[in-house]
């Protein structure tokens, strides 16, 4: 096995996904077979090859730092599932007990 249920559960926690045990089992099997397939990359000699992170040669896009119009506070929170006035409302972040 390339990956275990414990690792899938841990990664799911890191990416803030709740999974039930059936899903953990299924994803472990499926991801394991995908990782096994990806292992074929190890047969390629990549010594000294620069990685490509961007397919086209582009220059760093710089612009003058000038003030521009942007959305107001009310517009910015307009899509929030819960809001209080012009704030995003979230459950407690800091433990209180």
């Amino acid at each position: 096995m390339k990956i275990t249920k414990d690792v899938v559960e841990y990664v799911a926690h890191l990416v803030r996904l709740e999974l039930d045990p059936d899903e953990v089992g299924l994803y472990t099997l499926q991801i394991d077979s995908i990782l096994e397939y990806m292992d074929k990359l190890n047969s390629v000699d990549t010594k000294g090859i620069e990685p490509t992170s961007h397919p086209m040669p582009i220059e760093c896009a710089l612009r003058e730092d000038v003030e521009q119009d942007s959305f107001g506070v009310d517009e910015s929170v307009q899509n929030a599932p819960e809001r209080k006035g012009s704030f995003f409302k979230v459950p407690p972040v800091i433990e209180t007990d």
Binding site: L17, L35, T46, T52
Partner: peptide
């Protein structure tokens, strides 16, 4: 999301993400 986070995670980054980016160059 799980697979993508795994291939970027510390310890596996070089084996998967970096390797794939190098083969992308080829």
């Amino acid at each position: 999301i799980i697979l993508g986070t795994y291939v970027l995670s510390s310890g596996y980054y070089d084996a998967y993400y970096r390797k794939a980016s190098q083969v992308r160059t080829l």
